[in-house]
Every structure is written in structure tokens, then in C-alpha cells.
Amino acid sequence: MDDIRNIYCVGRNYRLHAQELGNEVPKSPMIFSKPTHALVETTGQEIVLPGNRGEVHYEAEFVIHISKPYKPGMKVEDVVDQFALGIDFTLRDVQSELKKKGHPWLLAKGFPNSAIITKFRAFPGVEACKEVDFSLIRNGQEVQRGNIQDMLFDLETIILFCSQHFGIGAGDIIYTGTPAGVGPVTDGDRLQLKWGEEILGECFIRLG
């Protein structure tokens, strides 16, 4: 993970997720970022999250790895070489207060260990990825299931938008949004990220 440069995240990219939190469905990609200190690979280990700042919510996501700068006319497959699954952890109570004040979300999204990620694997192409659901299993129960074909803004749109507004280059990764079903973690939770029926990564949560 040492080669990761920028961590971009797409907010409200699944209609049902936006609605479950009472948010307006966006008309263009809503992008925020996380510091690289937030990133941690899942290896079955215990991951410590802050337990003294209100509820910490899980948000399972499909993550893409950028291999080169984007140029107009490029296809997704030209710039994405790998994919993974991840969880964008969110301090939900903190985020709610920030929203009320019109402040940026960084305090709610950027804390250490707030971006967990599985090992990357070769990107098989957009159409192949649409044939497989990703899901999050919490203590043996499925709590989220999504498919990139249900995203409000597809991978091509997200990459183009990030390129135009922030720049995109080798080593950047993009968390592409979470489907409905988000909720709070509790101390001792076992979380597993699945690609189809295959578990790509898991961890145990400790609220410190």
C-alpha cells in the first residue's frame, strides 16, 4: 500500500443509500478525500476505531486503482489496472453535526483506519465486474450488497470528473460509493468483504 497517492471517495453514489440517510440524490459526482493515514489492508487482524465520538458506521465499497494519468477518450480499462473492496468508516454523529454547520466532512471521514481495503487483484473490465455482486458480512449476517451497475455515476464518469477537478495519476485509488444497508459497528464485530461468494478480506473491530 506504500504506492498509494490519493484516496478519492464518492458520496451518495447509490440512490437507496442516499435515501436511507435522508440525503438529496446528487446530480453530479460528490467527491471527498481521505488522508493516506486512513488506509489499512485487511489481513484478518484487529482494527481499532474511535469509540468515543459517537456511532461509527460501515460503508462497503468497490475500489479501483489507477495505473496512469487519464486523457480524454480513454476507456476505464485503459487507466484502471486493479480493483479491491473496502470500507469507508464514518463517524456518523460527527458527520451530522458537520453537515448542519456546512463544514467539510474530513473530521468524520479521515481518521486513522477509516479506509480499510482488501488486497488488490487484476481488473477484469467493467462488464465482467457488473456480473458479480459485492457484499459486507457482519458477524455472519449479510448487511450490504451492491453491484457497480447500480451506481448513479459509472466508473467512466467518476474517473473523468476526478481528472478534470483534481487530477488522476498512477497510485490513486477511488472508493466508488456504498449501497444501502449502512449501520453502526460494535466492539468485537467481525467484518468480511465478499466478491461474489469469495471472501477477499476480513477484520475484527475494536472500539478504542
Rank of each mutant, 00 (worst) to 15 (best):
K109Y: 11
L49R: 10
Q144M: 08
D2M: 05
H17W: 13
C203F: 15
N52V: 02
N139W: 01
L91R: 14
Y58T: 04
L98R: 04
Q164W: 00
T42I: 07
K34P: 01
I47M: 08
P72G: 03
S67E: 12
V63E: 02
D133Y: 10
Q192M: 12
D2Q: 14
G167R: 07
F32D: 08
S33Q: 14
L91E: 06
V94T: 15
E131R: 15
K101R: 15
D172K: 07
N139A: 01
Q95M: 15
F32P: 05
F134H: 04
F111Q: 04
E97G: 14
D172L: 06
K119T: 06
Q164C: 06
L21F: 14
F166V: 00
L193Y: 05
L191C: 04
S96V: 04
L155G: 09
P104G: 11
V94P: 10
I116E: 01
V10P: 03
K27M: 08
L39E: 02
I31F: 07
K119N: 13
T118N: 06
P35A: 11
F204L: 03
Y8K: 13
N13T: 14
S96T: 14
H37Q: 08
Q45L: 07
F161G: 01
L106D: 14
R12T: 11
E46Q: 09
G22E: 08
T118M: 06
V25Y: 02
F134A: 06
L85I: 10
F204P: 00
I66M: 01
W105T: 04
D2P: 00
E20A: 13
A128N: 14
D88F: 10
K71P: 00
P50A: 04
K75R: 15
I64A: 07
G86W: 07
E41T: 12
D133K: 07
K34F: 02
P26S: 06
T176V: 10
T178N: 13
H103W: 14
P26V: 06
L152R: 01
G196A: 10
A60W: 00
Q19E: 15
F83T: 05
I66V: 12
Q149N: 09
A38I: 07
C162A: 10
V56T: 09
T176R: 07
L21N: 14
N13V: 13
L98G: 02
G125Q: 09
P26R: 11
G102E: 08
V80E: 09
K194M: 13
A128V: 08
I7C: 11
D78C: 08
Q192W: 00
G181E: 09
Y58N: 05
F89Q: 09
V56M: 03
W195Q: 03
L107P: 00
W195E: 05
K75F: 09
A170F: 00
K71S: 13
K71A: 10
K27A: 12
L98N: 01
I87S: 11
P29M: 09
W195N: 04
A180Y: 02
Q45A: 15
G177M: 05
W105Q: 07
D78W: 11
L98I: 00
K100Q: 15
N147R: 07
K71I: 11
Q82M: 12
Q164F: 02
F166M: 09
K119P: 00
E97C: 04
L136E: 01
G188Y: 03
L155E: 05
A84H: 05
R206N: 11
M74E: 05
E55D: 06
R121M: 12
D78S: 12
E131Y: 01
L106T: 09
P104A: 11
R53A: 13
R121L: 06
